[in-house]
Design a protein around this nucleic acid. Sequence first.
DNA 1: ATGCATGAGTT
DNA 2: ACTCATGCATA
Length: 376
Amino acid sequence: MTMSMYSTTDKMKMSAPSCFPGRYSPSYRSSEQMRRCMPNPSSRLLEDASLLCNSWSARQNGDIFAGINDGILSRAEALAAVDIQKHQAQHVHSQMPSQIKHDVMYHHHSMSGPPQRPLQMHHSMDQLDMLDPTGSMTTLAPISESPLTPTHQHLHGSYHSMNHMMSHHHPGTLSGHTAGHHGHSAVHHPVITAAVAAAGLHPDTDTDPRELEAFAERFKQRRIKLGVTQADVGKALANLKLPGVGALSQSTICRFESLTLSHNNMIALKPILQAWLEEAEAQAKNKRRDPDAPSVLPAGEKKRTSIAAPEKRSLEAYFAVQPRPSGEKIAAIAEKLDLKKNVVRVWFCNQRQKQKRIVSSVTPSMTGHGSAGFGY
DNA sequence: ATGCATGAGTT
DNA sequence: ACTCATGCATA
């Protein structure tokens, strides 16, 4: 009980932010990420996506005021709008910070401009408000804890909840830019549409929470099928050589699969992981991988080479004669046994080490130590 | 799988 | 001061 509660709390603190797509904004990752990923398309996607998201939410909330001006409507306004709804009318524009402009502008420039960060708190607030009309604690806590099952929060639950809360409510927003299934004002906005198109985003396909979730699941299954670990994937990403895409940690891959990333983050990573997955499966299919050729498959996993009995016998025979064969000799042996030179070289190294161990154990006095005799 | 930490970029 | 995306270290 206590523990669970605690964990929940912690999670809330920590994960809540990233778990609720609704609120996050497109900010950029930091140092490492910037170096590796920022410069690439993914970052752009992220930006655009986030912008869109934000705008959508804003719109959604501000739908009431759709008549006013979408572009102008910012999350602040949206928030205000919500408030108005709840409370009955108040001043919508009370807060019209520069942010609003920013966001709007961003949308416009999304494709070309640098990443910006819209707003998020507002969104979350809005959502919260919407969810919790009572406005009791509009804080995040309520949402994560009470409404949703704490446990599920950071996992799928959170994602779904997010989706529902944010985009789902307004299908048009995230998923429907291009398609505009739901036909929301935001979606239809020419500006947005243009931005989306320009950015090359696939609103529905790429940003739909449902799609993201489905992809995450598929990704995990296929990844496992390939016999690749989360850590492997992270490392392999660097081999993809996608502009700006570097390696990622096991943590991040894990979070992606478990939907424990912010919506924007999910959107940014999806194309990258999708690219890896496709490449990995292609390579797996061809199954011919030169050790030298950069593979997106940790290659396949790092399989420890096993030397067949016959070859092993030969090696032992050679070893008996010459424990320290020269490079040339090793190459010749490798040639004869049809093994890679490096494999043979390592085998001899290991064999020598093994011998030392044996020797030392037999003659402890020599090494002065009982066990591992690496003394020499 | 996840708590805590870091660091960039914003506001 | 705060948000985010990530990573490290560890349960």
